[in-house]
Design a protein around this nucleic acid. Structure first.
Length: 827
DNA sequence: TGGCGAACTCTTTTT
DNA sequence: GAGTTCGCCA
């Protein structure tokens, strides 16, 4: 395998011609074709959009609200730069966050400019451009240009090894958690030496930094990088080799950045290095919307966008506020909601489409998530019979576990749906296994891949054998595959594993020798056949085996689009999603995060409950900032809808397998009444103390806030009350012991934030949550002192005292207990 | 060494 | 509740 990046289709056409020799015919022709007085692509732009397109020189910040034609501006701007001959395609650096966005941009520029886009080698995601830079300058970063990119799986396995090698308990210090920490550091652009003391101490009794350094060293020996390195290495190269940086300064005449509000510190540093030069104009154009910054948890710094004018003095700031997407009701709801945030740059979206027939935003209540799914399903079917296409509808959830209920429902209804960004194709076990085989073939030094499949399928090479191979590898300083070969030639191994290992090593040799002789798809099939991998699944009688075989076929099929095995591997490392059939008419189901940038006629937003949305963890970890980010997420959700918008909340939801009663999201209270309707479609909001198993019974304890038509303006938000309750109750909870005394309640807040004392005692937490839905009513209890009540666990008793919704009850048999009113029934 | 049951964690969002 | 990991036993 040569490490020449030009082998890769991904890198295919590179960025010359230089301005001195226009050479490349296509781009030149395209430009010539577009040159002259006619600029048809500018037609139909509004004045602000046009300004954003035509202000090509100097720093420009485009604040583009939702649905204001942001992508159109970006693509037209590129087209304009090309068409007016300001730059060659290879002189434009255009960065996006997602592959989806990059693809879309490529396509749309292509439509505007013709084939010239083929010559835009520097349009891509931060990461794909990072790889490209790093392949060119790998030696400056201490790597070979054939370096591999680790996926999360590899990364965690590697970290686990390192943690164990330190003699640490990898249960107490989980690799997964450490991987996230490293990720966080890398997002901030921190090398092991730069980590603040406190951070370094936080993991493994202060060994955090040392482990991080060990991890980086290990990556280097493996000739591998992780996602964060794709940014950090180029940054370091730029800093240490100014002439390299200057080369790119000369190269990139125009820089465009999409979704600027989502850039993290490392990306920001990367951009600054490329954009800020000693002299001359900096033609950098960043497009973003501070109200749609939803990746703070991943290290994104909204500050970057708020600070743009300081970073680039003399910047032109252009606001796009005319919304072309949504009705006035939807826009009104979204704007009113987002106005609750502080620290915004502030935009006022407006629309000229206003029709008295436009439906208001609808809020629906359901008893539980099942009913919620049923309700949404009914609505979808109703729309379908009215002639709406399923493709125009989407369900956007806060957390992916919510998807399940909908999938179940749609399967029963026979309704087509498509999950976007769900469990990723390339993350499936069988795909990863197959890929590991391919990696070892293409990349014999890829130890992590080798390790993954030495004993898959089982060939009697267990832990003992693997350790032996490891020892040899370490001793001789060679990759595992090489060590295996060496070991086969000796008597050191027992005959059985030795034979197995010999077969494997020989197979790899054979496959490697085939690499240039047969097509890569053929080779791939051969590998999977001869390794026994496909047989393994054929012999597997489990329900999912056929699907896995199908996926493997799909994998081979998708390889056809690539020229070489290496090109394919590169693609997979960066693009974790596989494209899906767009032909089908289907409802889209995805998380709010992956919905950014999309739009649908009809949007359903289920799960607007405290604790889920806003998510409890966002509140716990992020405080006010966290809440504001959740609100922006809500804003993103609302503004995806063009015409119909349905919000749902349920009064009971199962979390960790336990039923919990929930409260409507505070965000519902933040919507303007003028634009919102409360649906009359029944729904079972309300009930306290009802058994989860019997939905639909009348609510015995009064009315919901939503029984009254309006959201009574109790800004005394339920969430705060609950948060406080959780905190105080955490102390007087009596965790169950194995023998059966159990806590009366559990709550969102404490489920996994059991710090300190909680840690050890979390074990015995078997709570009868499945019996009765929990109540966390903030209305006074419906019981009176002296009431005769029944409790599932403790039996009959009399109410002795009432404190909010907590009751002290003298049980006939169990004695005096404090319980929540939700757990008892009046007799 | 591998298979089976018990125990434990997990659920935010992703390049 | 579910998926995964761990530990014991054959």
């Amino acid at each position: 395998m040569s490490g020449n990046p030009d082998d890769l289709p991904f890198f295919g056409d590179d960025d010359m011609p230089s301005p001195a020799q226009p050479g490349g015919g296509i781009a030149a022709r395209a430009m010539a074709a577009r040159r002259g007085p006619s600029t048809p692509y500018l037609e139909g732009l509004n004045p602000e959009q046009r300004l954003a397109v035509e202000t090509t020189e100097g720093p420009v910040l485009v604040l583009a609200g939702a649905g204001t034609g942001k992508t159109r501006v970006l693509t037209t701007r590129i087209a304009h730069i090309l068409a007016t001959g300001r730059a060659y395609p290879s002189q434009i650096l255009a960065v996006t966050f997602t592959n989806k966005a990059a693809r879309e941009m490529k396509m749309r520029v292509g439509v505007l400019v013709g084939e010239a886009v083929e010559g835009m080698p520097w349009l891509g995601t931060f990461h794909s451009i990072g790889v490209k830079l790093l392949r060119r300058h790998s030696e400056l970063a201490g790597l070979k240009s054939s370096f591999t990119i680790l996926d999360t799986d590899d990364q965690i396995r590697l970290l686990k090894q390192l943690i164990q090698a330190e003699g640490l308990d990898d249960k107490r210090w989980p690799a997964r958690q450490f991987a996230q920490m490293i990720d966080g550091w890398k997002n901030k652009g921190l090398a092991p030496g730069d980590i603040p003391e406190g951070d370094a101490r936080a993991f493994a009794n202060g060994k955090g930094r040392q482990l991080y350094a060990a991890y980086q060293a290990r990556l280097k020996t493996l000739n591998a990088v992780d996602f964060g390195d794709l940014l950090l290495h180029p940054i370091r190269v730029f800093r240490e080799y100014p002439d390299v940086l200057r080369e790119y300064h000369a190269k990139f005449k125009y820089i465009l950045v999409d979704e600027y509000q989502d850039t993290n510190t490392a990306q920001y540093m990367w951009l600054r290095l490329l954009a800020q030069r000693q002299a001359g104009s900096v033609n950098v154009c960043c497009v973003g919307d501070d109200d749609q910054s939803i990746y703070g948890w991943r290290g994104a710094e909204v500050d970057n966008i708020l600070r743009f004018e300081k970073d680039f003095p003399g910047a032109t700031v252009i606001r796009l506020e005319r919304n072309y997407r949504s009705t006035a009701h939807i826009l009104g709801a979204a704007s009113h909601l987002i106005a609750h945030n502080e620290g915004r740059l502030g935009k006022t979206l407006f629309t000229e489409q206003s029709d008295p027939d436009d439906p208001k935003v609808k809020v629906h209540a359901a008893w539980d998530s099942e009913e919620e799914a049923r309700g949404v399903g009914e609505e979808i079917e109703a729309l379908q019979t009215k002639g709406h296409a399923l493709n125009d509808m989407a369900i956007l959830v806060r957390a992916s576990f919510q998807m399940r209920e909908f999938e179940d429902r749609f399967v029963t209804l026979g309704l087509n749906y498509r999950v976007i960004g769900g469990p990723r194709f390339y993350e499936r076990q069988e795909i990863r296994d197959a890929m590991a085989y391919f990696r070892v073939v293409a990349q014999p030094a890829d130890d992590l891949a080798f390790e993954r499949i030495v004993n898959v399928p089982k060939r009697g090479l267990g832990e003992a054998a693997v350790r032996q191979i490891h020892d040899v590898a370490r001793m001789r300083g060679v990759p595992l595959l090489q060590a295996a070969r060496d070991l086969v030639g000796t008597e050191e191994m027992k005959p059985k594993p030795r034979a197995a290992l010999r077969t494997l090593a020989e197979s790899f040799e054979r496959w490697q020798s085939q690499i240039d002789r047969v097509s890569h798809t053929e080779l791939a099939e051969q590998i999977l056949e001869e390794s026994g991998y496909t047989d393994m699944w054929k012999n597997d009688r489990s329900a999912e085996a056929p699907g896995r075989l199908e996926n493997l076929k799909e994998l081979i099929r998708s390889m056809e689009e690539y020229e070489s095995l290496r090109g394919f591997l590169e693609h997979v490392a960066l693009v974790m999603d596989a494209e899906r059939d767009e032909g089908l008419d289907a409802v889209s189901l995805m998380t709010l995060h992956s919905a950014k940038g999309l739009e649908f006629d009809t949007v359903f937003l289920p799960g607007w409950e405290e604790g889920l949305f806003p998510h409890q963890r966002a509140l716990d970890e992020g405080g006010r900032t966290g809440l504001e980010e959740e609100r922006r997420l809500a804003y993103v959700g609302l503004t995806r809808a063009k015409r119909n918008l349905h919000l749902w909340f349920t009064s009971n939801r199962r979390i960790h397998g336990l039923w919990q009663s929930t409260l409507p999201s505070r965000f519902l209270d933040e919507l303007p009444e003028a634009h919102v309707d409360v649906a009359e479609d029944g729904g079972g909001y309300g009930g306290y103390g009802r058994s989860a198993g019997q939905p639909g019974r009348p609510n015995p304890y009064g009315r919901s806030r939503f029984d009254d038509t309006s959201f009574s303006n109790s800004y005394a938000t339920p969430g705060w009350q609950r948060a406080q309750r959780n905190r105080t109750d955490a102390t007087d909870r009596n965790w169950g012991t194995r023998s059966g005394h159990q806590a009366e309640r559990i709550g969102y807040g404490e489920t996994d934030s059991g710090y300190g004392a909680g840690r050890g005692s979390v074990k015995g937490r078997t709570i009868e949550g499945e019996l009765v839905a929990k109540s966390v009513s903030d209305s006074p209890s419906a019981f009176k002192i002296g009431d005769r009540v029944f409790h599932m666990k403790f039996g009959n008793g009399n109410v002795a005292a009432i404190e909010g919704n907590k009751l002290t009850i003298n049980f006939d048999k169990a004695g005096q207990k404090r319980v929540l009113d939700g757990f008892v029934k009046a007799l």
